[in-house]
Design a binder for these strands. Structure first.
Lengths: 206, 206
DNA sequence: TCGACATACATACAGGATGTATGTATCGGA
DNA sequence: TCCGATACATACATCCTGTATGTATGTCGA
């Protein structure tokens, strides 16, 4: 006999698996829930019982993807000692994780549009963005960068990485693109060093 | 008597105006075409006659928004002589234009999800992205930056600006956020200078 | 100027998708 | 063993897109 908790977990897991693949393949709007659950041998009743709505299902799918990416980033950064190298390793891990279609399309393209940017960002703040903010803060504490607004720095790096992740996915040699991006990012961060002398006039602060 | 060309132009214009506002307010999926055309005193027949589909209407709305942004960027950059200052002025203009909700939500959030990132990027390449690529190329020609892949640089700056534009829109003092972003961008570009000595090991090129 | 054609739009209908209300069988605990 | 909760199915209401068709008005050549 299978317990109810087991049954619940199995069904949720199965639906999430199929949903992840379908959303990645066809996009949020291109997926019909009827087809989705049919593949699992279920009906939409099960889906609405467990996830409440199509958005609810999508949110659950996103949450898992965000968690997986965050885990990869955290692990990659943790095995490196120097703050900057750890930060760059984390960024590289993010770009590599984003090669998976379920990350690219679901998390980066459809995510903000379906959940609304605010909610999407809230979820992101609990995973990748949190790590990025922490990483930027560490760089600042280590004296490697200085900025009026560390939040702006984190936002810009986040956006830069997201865009590279999407653009890079369809490239012929994604690994090469990742190398370029990480190298460029390292030099850009170098420009934020307190010692950096850009050698040209800065816009004056208000 | 009103000519058919006039009538056509008027109707298209009116629908585009209303559609722009509605898409910005409620997002692509949240807009029902029936309500939209009712506001113009028309029926969906007119809409489908002129735009073919909901996506077609959205694409037309996006095209206009992209054109308006590109125009603002181009003008801002054109009135400044020095390459770097012109580039930064263009970026600032982009951030300021993005404060308008129809730019933020339609162009930056819903755009890639609705049209697909590829098509969205293609449209972007004909407006803002083209200017950005050109700007980055100019910086390189002026010897201000050097990079293995200028395309990667442009992609990263584009993503950084987009993210700041969205994040900044809900901020208490957007103008302050724009100043921070432009200042940070200037220093990051400084890090891409051939003369920049980051003072730490770079990842080796393959 | 007059008639045929094209265009701008309205109307009607088909199809599919989400969401909800309700029914049913099974599991778990008292 | 019995009762409630849970997991899921079924049936229905609603909405929205897209298309096919109809109609009136402008356009243009004979």
């Amino acid at each position: 006999m299978v317990t109810k908790a087991e049954q619940r977990e199995r069904t949720r897991e199965e639906i999430l698996r199929i949903a992840t693949r379908r959303f990645a393949e066809s996009g949020y709007a291109g997926v019909a829930l009827e087809d989705l659950v049919a593949e699992a041998g279920l009906t939409r009743g099960a889906l609405y019982h467990h996830f409440g709505s199509k958005q609810g299902l999508f949110a659950a799918v996103i949450e898992r993807a965000q968690f997986a990416v965050a885990e990869a980033v955290e692990h990659a950064a943790a095995v490196v000692a120097a703050p900057l190298d750890a930060f760059l390793a984390g960024c590289r891990a993010f770009l590599e994780a984003s090669l998976a279609p379920e990350v690219r399309r679901i998390l980066l393209v459809d995510g903000p549009a379906v959940l609304g940017w605010g909610d999407w960002r809230d979820g992101d703040l609990e995973s990748s963005a949190r790590l990025l903010d922490a990483g930027v803060a560490e760089l600042a504490e280590a004296g490697l960068i200085r900025a009026r607004s560390l939040g702006t720095v984190a936002t810009m790096i986040s956006g830069a990485l997201n865009e590279v992740a999407i653009a890079n996915a369809t490239a012929a040699h994604p690994e090469r693109g990742i190398d370029d991006a990480v190298a460029t990012l390292a030099r850009m961060i170098g420009g934020l060093s307190p010692r950096a002398d850009p050698g040209f006039a800065q816009p004056s602060a208000p």
